[in-house]
């Protein structure tokens, strides 16, 4: 088995225990709910977007260590960035946890690269990507997101 420490890295455990940007966002103007039918996990992503920039982003909900840490790290990563850049991050993140990316792209993902070990655990890919699917819905049509 790939080492569990590859999956449950310190950064992930830290964000799981002390999630950043957790809670409601009253001034948010973009919202979406996400659902992982596999495990029943649900989370909500709120974003405040102005002039094409994600001014603030927060999330709520319950889930496993991987999905919670992923939501937490995602909010840190996209806050203050243009919407288009968040979309690009989503695509690269998704490639990293499914098929893998080269070292250069992995490095460009910064802290998000702690999720590279997820690729070795196919049953957990959806946990890592739920928050991202939900963010994309919030930035797009606002419809409920699902990992299925």
């Amino acid at each position: 088995m790939p080492d569990l420490r590859e999956l449950y890295q310190e950064v992930i455990l830290d964000h799981h225990k002390r999630p950043r940007n957790f809670g409601p966002l009253p001034e948010g103007n973009r919202h979406a709910k996400g659902h992982n039918p596999l495990c029943g996990d649900r989370l909500t992503v709120h974003a405040q977007v102005a002039d094409g920039i994600i001014r603030d982003v927060r999330f709520e909900g319950a889930g496993c260590a991987i999905s919670r840490a992923s939501a937490s790290l995602m909010t840190d990563a996209v806050k203050g960035r243009p919407v288009a850049e968040a979309q690009r991050l989503f695509e690269e993140f998704h490639r990293m946890v499914t098929v893998g990316v080269d070292d250069e792209i992995e490095a460009s993902l910064g802290k998000l690269s702690v999720f590279c070990g997820v690729r070795e655990f196919p049953s957990r890919v959806k946990c890592a990507s739920l928050a991202w699917h939900t963010l994309r819905s919030a930035l797009g049509d606002g419809r409920d997101a699902s990992t299925e």
Binding site: M1, L4, Y8, G63, C64, I66, C127
Partner: peptide, 13 residues
């Protein structure tokens, strides 16, 4: 507070 999915993955290991 440990999610059952995390339990399952670690037990599998």
């Amino acid at each position: 507070e440990i999610h059952p999915h995390d339990i399952g993955t670690i037990l599998d290991g």
